[in-house]
Design a protein around this nucleic acid. Structure first.
Length: 583
RNA sequence: GCCGAAGUAACUCAGUGGCCAGAGUAUCUGUAUUGUAAACAGAACGUCGUGGGUUCGACUCCCACCUUCGGCUCCA
């Protein structure tokens, strides 16, 4: 098999997982091993260590053992086994027993793969000769993981590692991880003074600092103006509302664990809003609606509050108060597909503007569970509608069972952060349930009352999450249109400070975000600091520029663009801002 | 919430069971007035995450808690 082949890498990593298990069993013979697949960037193996505590300090020891064991592994031998044989072999391992029972029930053939002394229940997918090929691996971390991914099950110890065909590729991968950490939005958020999350305010609660607020405001303004062009109507709604609102919507029943406890206001229970749908429904209900008004698109940049378990919080990626670029489209059933496609295309357009190309679309449909409202036929209809719309939009997608909202199927946009982790951002959801529950109606052209369809959508998802990925994507060097400071004026010495202030006020009048570095520092230091702040343009002004009534332009890429006059610089900058040029 | 790790100055990080815990950067003061990535000097800055315990003595050892990080579960 070709060594640069994706399957080869999977086989290599799966083989490494076997080797990891062998090393662990050698070091801690009482351990119960479970499963060890290859994953996107490596592999893992889950163990039940019993009473033994394993920590990251043990990883080098395990790695050494792996290097030792692999020398005697010249092949993976396949053995077909009967259920009776294999049950006996793993008689003290309830996890393997569970797998064996399941596999044999499904009529699968049971196979064991053996290398040297080590045998494992496995369906195959290995490299030919581990002693020759399996040399370049590293164990990376330890984590807890529930058996079969279920919170109700016992927590096992998962050991993560990675393996490559060559040392060079392994080193490159490890280097790449180190590089990615430099783009971490939490690190950049501090360095560039974008936001702060501290414990005085509370876990998962963001304060946007001036720089971050500027970025956010630009994006919000852009969203609002684009949506106005598409016929959206923007509203404002309160942050709390009576609990009965969410009882009516069904959220209280199905989503309660995500909401903060009700507060008592003069004997009536209120909730801090975890989502805005019921509020927007009120805007629909103010008067009888005609089919002529549909689609009615109600939008709001809306802050919502959801309880996330403390261990789930992560920088801006997962917070307890976040802001959605929310909207609800009320339309006729006939309009639903086209409305869905319009939203879908809008999201794709937005992501292009922000420079995201590597995202995936996940279609969430129901699973066999109790957590959904409504009956089978309306669900089937809605799911078919979403998939038909995606086909019509000619988009690639993958279907994921169990990822539907409780009121309907949805399509989510998944974007990767610096470390390659995927996060759900944009979402479009088709909803036949809430209009019914709230008794929404419109008068159709035949004079009859009908129930509209609702489309819930948030193209960016959460501004907090979207911005964190944006920060990492740009490594803090934002496109000019959203850069907190677009131009930094650097006087060569105090002598040119007046001229610098003059330039600055002209830029301000042209609505350019500008700052003057007034410090009595050397020019070199001023440049260095402006560079560290990733300011797109530095204007260097000294005696020469003052004399010629010009400015010298330097970019954050370190390019000296030479002298130009201010008006042509402003014109070029404005143009770049208007075009939302990526750089 | 669960598993594992970490927490020392505003930031990045050294450090040792024993005088008063250090460095660089940032801050403040002074000098230099500077031409495309770091001027020089001085000053100030710490409940060593919090609370208990062991000890003659704890930043260091033990316990509990808090927060953060990597995962799991959950999710925008």
């Amino acid at each position: 098999m070709q060594k640069d082949n994706k399957d080869y890498l999977e086989h290599l990593r799966h083989s490494a997982a076997h080797l990891l298990a062998a090393a662990v069993m050698d070091l801690w013979p009482k351990t119960k091993r479970t499963i060890g697949p290859s994953i996107e960037n490596g592999f893992y193996y889950d163990f039940d260590f019993g009473k033994v505590k394993i920590s990251e300090d043990d990883l080098p020891k395990i790695e050494n053992k792996m290097h030792y064991i692999v020398k005697s592994w010249e092949r993976f031998e396949r053995h077909d086994v009967t259920k009776a044989q294999i049950v006996k072999e793993f008689k003290t391992n309830e996890y393997k027993q569970e797998l064996i029972n399941e596999f044999s029930k499904e009529g699968q053939k049971l196979t064991v793969y053996q290398s040297s002394e080590f045998r494992d229940l496995c369906r195959g997918g290995h490299i030919d000769n581990p002693s020759q090929e399996l040399k370049h691996f590293k164990l990376l971390s330890i984590a807890g993981a529930y058996w079969r991914g279920d919170e109700k099950n016992k927590m096992l110890t998962r050991i993560y590692g990675t393996a490559f065909a060559s040392q060079k590729e392994l080193d490159e991968y490890l280097h790449q991880i180190e590089e990615a950490k430099k783009r971490d939005h939490r690190k950049l958020g501090k360095e560039l003074e974008l936001f702060t999350i501290n414990n005085e305010v509370g876990q998962g609660l963001t304060i946007w600092l001036p720089n971050g607020s500027t970025i956010r405001r630009e994006i919000e303004n852009y969203m609002v103006s684009e949506q106005i062009k598409m016929g959206y109507k923007h509203v404002y709604s309160p942050h709390i509302g009576q609990k009965s609102l969410w009882e009516k919507s069904g959220h209280w029943d199905l989503y309660r664990e995500k909401m903060y406890s009700p507060m008592d206001v003069e004997g009536v229970e209120y909730l801090v809003k975890p989502m805005t749908c019921p509020m927007h429904i009120q805007t629909y209900e103010i008067k009888p609606r005609s089919y002529r008004e549909l689609p009615l698109k109600i939008a709001e940049i809306a802050s919502v509050y959801r309880y996330e378990k403390s261990g789930e919080l992560s920088g801006l990626l997962r917070v307890r108060a976040f802001t959605q670029d929310d909207a609800h489209i009320f339309c006729t059933p006939e309009q639903a597909t086209d409305q869905f496609i319009e939203v879908f295309n809008f999201i794709q357009k937005l992501y292009k503007v922000f420079g995201f190309e590597n995202y995936r679309v996940r279609v969430g449909i129901r699973s066999k569970s109790e957590k959904y409202l409504g009956n089978n036929s309306s669900w089937k209809k809605a799911e078919d509608r979403v998939i038909a719309a995606l086909k019509k939009a000619k988009s690639d997608y993958f279907v994921s069972e169990g990822d539907a909202a409780f009121y309907g199927p949805k399509a989510d946009f998944l974007i990767k952060d610096a470390l390659g982790r995927e996060w759900q951002c944009g979402t479009v959801q088709v909803d036949f349930m809430l209009p019914q529950r709230f008794g929404l109606k419109y008068i159709d052209n035949d004079g009859k009352e009908k129930t509209p369809v609702m489309i819930h959508r948030a193209p960016l998802g959460s501004l907090e999450r979207f911005l964190s990925i944006l920060i990492e994507n740009y490594a803090g060097a934002f496109p000019v249109w959203i850069s907190p400071v677009q131009v930094k004026v650097l006087p060569v010495s105090d002598k040119s400070l007046d001229y610098a202030m003059d330039i600055s006020s002209k830029l301000l009048k042209s609505c350019i975000r500008v700052e003057v570095d007034e410090r009595a520092e050397t020019l070199g230091a001023k440049i260095r600091d402006a560079q560290a702040q990733k300011v797109p343009y530095m204007l260097i002004v000294g005696e020469k520029e003052k004399e010629a009534s010009k400015i010298s332009v330097r970019t954050r890429a370190g390019k000296d663009l030479g002298q130009s006059d201010l008006s042509s610089f402003i014109k070029r900058l404005k143009d770049q801002i208007d075009k939302k040029a990526l750089d």
